[in-house]
Write a protein that binds this DNA or RNA. Structure first.
Lengths: 195, 195, 195, 195
DNA sequence: CATGAATGAGTTTTCATTCAT
DNA sequence: AATGAATGAAAACTCATTCAT
């Protein structure tokens, strides 16, 4: 049967196609339930083509996770976000992060929930948050009563769950969700400000 | 090794041994990375023996998850917990749950984090919590400002993360963790009470 | 759990029970689809008990076949059957054989259809039949036109199929079936006799 | 051996090779005694290659049987065979069938003797034969004395046995065997014609 | 005499990966 | 750049058989 390069084929296009389909499948079925044969089938390519662009299934998966981790780090660690401070800075950071999640829903499912590396991602978020809390909210009421680390871990836990149940399902918008979370966590500060 | 029955062997003991090793391995390496050969090896038994007690790896895993789900349901859904009400009831429920987690750390890792069924478990917890909020705290300040469902999802997210980072690592005790979570979520109510 | 000899248990009884259940299962599901675990389950006994009475599954199966072969040989090779001659002798032999089949339907299914050894059984029948034809019917019309061996093989083929479809299903009685077969095979002789 | 594609390899060739070796082995040793490892070994291929072309051993076996059944149905059910009638039609049909058997001896052994489905094949043949008898020979002498169904079953039994002992062993030619069978079954009609 | 408990030795099946074209 | 064909390595699972009690 006919073999060799297809008309209209183009390296970069094939690579992108494979990657997108891989993300989709990994996020839907998980790493182990996604076979290379599934990926290439949904990209209408063949298995050797996969190995033309990716060294192995595992390396592709890890690369995807690194990408997620990096892009997230970049967003969250921009310390002077639109010139905001205090709770506003947190709310703005969350909004930016949620927007990134909404724009990359499948990559988020992988990097935030599916991968072993998700642990590292969340640890990074927690330490970024701790940093903000320490620098921006050290005199707040909340932190007088609750351990900073616990507060940070708790908030990231909330983010984790609400992203899955309310954000990616489009029940709540990025802005709204960021606001609600701040309301939950900093109600005491906000009420003082508002009054 | 010779065939047939071993000296001092006993069915129930072997079954329990296999189950415990399976829980340990599943919780450490995950379902897919745990091979039946690993389980029986760590129990010093053979593969056929595994099938003597469990129909398949998948069924064992599901049974483990059902057990976790059931035991958790029982704890959390005892509506009149030690005659407590309002926030106290929530704090008491969390304490009981955290105690169960501490007593079954590996099963918790499986049923709360590893399994597909963990989704159902958390949904159950969320709806139990919503019920409590609706019946016990409907006039609270928090719920005036935040959507009940979002609050419940958020709190379960916090539980999820803090269990992993602070409870199972023994950084925080069940009682303390329950208290901190209530502090975070119901600071406004508590301060009113306290003042 | 309780082990050891049951009340009311008795060696010979258990052996017979096992054998009968084995015959039933072998005849229904075939040698390979019948597992020792099936046999002992349907006899309400255990696997080691099986090995108390039979050396192995294969040996039991072979013994069953030998028994069938021997009992059949005895019947068919009784040369002076009730003082009959010619076609009557054949008809009488068939009747006796069919009666044996009816009395041992499951053993027949095994020894005549299921076993590799069934080849030998049928060869034996063919050679017995050839002997009868040669000694009793050598001047018959049929044998003038048809090769004796082919006639014998054909008749045993008929016996084989009709036993399965008409005898063991009780559609036709042993006597009637023997008669019909003789009618088919020796019509020309019989009509001469009758006219 | 090195992995990947072999020199000069070709899918269809491998598939055919596997199928032929499977037929050979199934017919010689039976379904259960034939392991996939045997099939691929005799085709000088590996187990995964088997699954490249066949879903499972059982499905391959069933497909082989369907093929036999279909090809046989086609031959036997061609009602106007070379413009023949009556006994000639039967003789011609048998000849065609025997020729098919001779050309496909191993498939015949499987589909006619080894498979569970052989029951269905023979039932089909019986009902075809009954149809012919009813339409072409309803006034014959034989059918006055013998039940049509019994005659048909008997004849198919003869075919079954003689195919194995005389046809596939090449002791008798297709034409000769068909003739002999007709002689046995329709001697009375033929003698009338001949006289 | 009988059993509960266990295993050796296979069997089918899957899947990431690689060669020749 | 891409593919058809193939495979190594390992997975889950089965079953006749055997030991200790």
């Amino acid at each position: 049967m006919a073999r060799g390069r297809r008309v209209n084929s183009c390296g970069e296009k094939s690579k992108k196609l494979l990657m997108e389909n891989a993300i989709e499948l990994f996020s839907t079925y998980g790493y182990h339930q996604t076979k290379i044969s599934d990926i290439v089938k949904s990209a209408s390519l063949t298995q050797p083509t996969f190995y033309l662009y990716f060294q192995s299934k595992e390396i592709l998966f890890n690369d995807l996770n690194k990408r997620f981790h990096n892009e997230l780090t970049e967003i969250f660690s921009a310390y002077d976000i639109n010139g905001k401070f205090g709770i506003d800075l947190i709310q703005e950071s969350l909004t930016l992060m949620f927007n990134y999640f909404i724009e990359n829903p499948n990559l988020t499912k992988i990097g935030f929930y599916e991968a072993e590396q998700s642990t590292a991602v969340k640890e990074m978020l927690v330490s970024e948050l701790i940093h903000i809390l320490n620098t921006q909210l050290k005199d707040s009421n909340v932190l007088k009563q609750v351990d900073t680390t616990i507060l940070a871990e708790s908030l990231i836990g909330s983010v984790e769950r609400l992203t899955l149940t309310n954000l990616l399902t489009k029940k709540t918008s990025p802005e709204q969700l960021a606001k609600e979370i701040c309301m939950i966590y900093f109600a005491t500060e906000l009420s003082l400000v508002q009054s």
